[in-house]
């Protein structure tokens, strides 16, 4: 795996996505390099989730190009993964879900169990390996989804609001795992609505507005001195106590 050309950087060139006459993404160009954790912020409908899906290849852009630096070989394990807002787990045991994903990835049967057990241990689910995945709590299901995504050490992990449906404790668990995945060398690209979470996890911010990349800054700069009026208004709106405190 190490001697292969890396997938990153990822280049989006003038990417648009139009659905029912409305431009969800509107001529968006950017480059994502390995390393910094990229957090995508923006209002509802700004195009954040669609951007992630276009990058991950789940949606084909209406126009423009999505170029990875290397191409993935069909039949080999995927080198990018995605975790969704609502975790999708199948009617199997927790470890069965991981073995199933490894089977899809073409991992030989003999190696699946060990990899699956390691992955469960890394997200703290080893004690419930044999419980049916569908009856786990929301936080446990999301950690299982993270384990599945992390199992084969992808180069890039996309996360689409992975903690939106979770309580604060479960959310912090997810953040801890995301941090660990970053530390292990996977590029994190994550959409969130939780600004506290964005502050804790972000190295850089992509701020989308109306389907365009409105602002891209280092996290600290974005939160203290947003460069655009739209970003400033977004931060004010999302943190209403700031305006009262400033008054």
């Amino acid at each position: 795996m190490a001697d292969r050309a890396p997938l990153l950087p990822l280049v989006l060139d003038d990417v648009s996505f139009v659905a029912r006459g409305r431009a969800i993404l509107d001529g968006l160009s950017l480059e994502l390099a390995a390393g910094p954790r990229t957090i995508v912020l923006g209002h509802n409908g700004a195009g954040k989730s669609v951007l992630l899906r276009v990058m991950h290849g789940l949606i084909a852009p209406t126009s423009g190009n999505v170029r990875w630096s290397a191409s993935e070989v069909p039949g080999e394990p995927r080198r990018q993964a995605m975790v969704f807002q609502r975790p999708v787990v199948f009617r199997r045991s927790a470890i069965g879900n991981l073995r199933f994903a490894l089977a899809i990835a073409g991992v030989p049967r003999a190696e699946r169990d060990g990899l699956a057990r390691d992955a469960l241990a890394r997200v703290g689910l080893d004690a419930i390996a044999h419980q049916p995945a569908r009856v786990l709590s929301g936080g446990e299901q999301q950690r299982l989804a993270l384990a599945r995504a992390w199992m084969l050490s992808p180069e890039v992990l996309f996360l689409d609001e992975p903690t939106t449906n979770l309580d604060p404790g479960a959310s912090l668990e997810i953040e801890r795992v995301v941090q660990a995945i970053h530390d292990a060398g996977t590029k994190i690209v994550m959409v969130t609505h939780d600004l506290g979470q964005a502050r804790r996890l972000a190295d850089e911010i992509l701020f989308l507005h109306g389907g365009r990349l409105c602002e891209r800054s280092a996290a600290a700069a974005f939160f203290h001195h947003p460069a655009t009026a739209e970003a400033a208004a977004y931060l004010e709106g999302e943190l209403p106590w700031r305006s009262t405190a400033a008054a």
Partner: peptide, 25 residues
Amino acid sequence: ESREQLVSLGAGTWTSALALLVDVR
């Protein structure tokens, strides 16, 4: 419910169909 996840994992059409049959057994 699970199309995006299966595609993301790299499952093809037939693998997905079979997996879903097992899922709704």
